[in-house]
Amino acid sequence: MYYTWAYTALILGILVSVYALVRGGPAERTGAVMFLVAWLATTLVQGRKFNGIEWGIVAVDSALLVGFVFLALWSRKIWTILIAACQLNAVASHFVPLLAPKFNYVAYLTLVEFWGGYGLLLFLAIGTYSHQRELRLTKAGAAG
């Protein structure tokens, strides 16, 4: 079951990141690069067996949270606030095993992956689409 999540996230991560890098503005491209760097860093620091909280991943996710907060402050776009909120939920989800020691591994992965993976990709895609829509409306307004 874990492999289904991983492969789906891999495909969606690549597609949305390429979409943001090619069609996005400065904020979208910055968000995509931050996502990809954090994804690579997570792959490098994650353990091969689940032994509770993975502090390396917590560090990467926390750094990404700080980056998304700065991106939100810099760009002033709604989607950046939403992506920072998703990342905050992902970071908070890492600490659930401290509150519930018998917390299920699959539930833990689902929580972290939902907010820190699919949530980020959803709002990055929405932000890129919004940027493209804004460009079309600006172009239509200039032509009319």
Rank of each mutant, 00 (worst) to 15 (best):
A90E: 01
F114N: 04
I81F: 09
L98R: 01
F114Y: 09
T110L: 12
R76S: 11
F95D: 15
V96R: 02
F68M: 04
I81K: 05
V91L: 07
G117A: 11
L109E: 12
S93C: 11
I78Q: 15
I78V: 14
F70C: 08
S93F: 10
P101C: 08
A92F: 06
V69W: 06
V112K: 01
S75D: 13
C86N: 10
C86A: 08
V69H: 02
F114M: 13
L82I: 10
P101T: 08
A100C: 07
L88Y: 07
F68D: 06
V69N: 04
A72Q: 04
T80E: 12
L88E: 12
A90T: 03
N89S: 15
S75L: 14
A90V: 00
E113P: 00
Y105A: 14
Q87T: 05
V106R: 14
A107I: 09
G117K: 04
V112I: 11
C86L: 07
F114T: 09
A72G: 01
L88Q: 02
G117I: 02
A90L: 05
A90H: 06
Y105L: 05
A100I: 12
Y105C: 02
V69A: 09
L99R: 06
G117H: 05
L82F: 07
F70M: 09
G116H: 06
I83R: 06
G116T: 05
I78A: 15
H94D: 13
V96A: 04
A90K: 02
P97K: 00
L71C: 04
N89R: 11
A100D: 10
A72H: 04
A107S: 12
V112P: 03
P97T: 08
I83E: 11
C86F: 04
L111Y: 05
V106W: 12
L73V: 06
A84I: 03
A100M: 13
E113I: 06
W115K: 10
A107C: 02
E113Q: 14
A72I: 02
C86H: 00
S93W: 02
H94R: 01
V106K: 15
L82D: 01
N104M: 11
V112T: 08
N104L: 06
S93P: 08
K102C: 03
P97R: 03
A72D: 02
S93G: 12
A100G: 09
L71W: 01
L98M: 13
A107T: 13
V69I: 05
F103T: 06
L109N: 07
I83N: 05
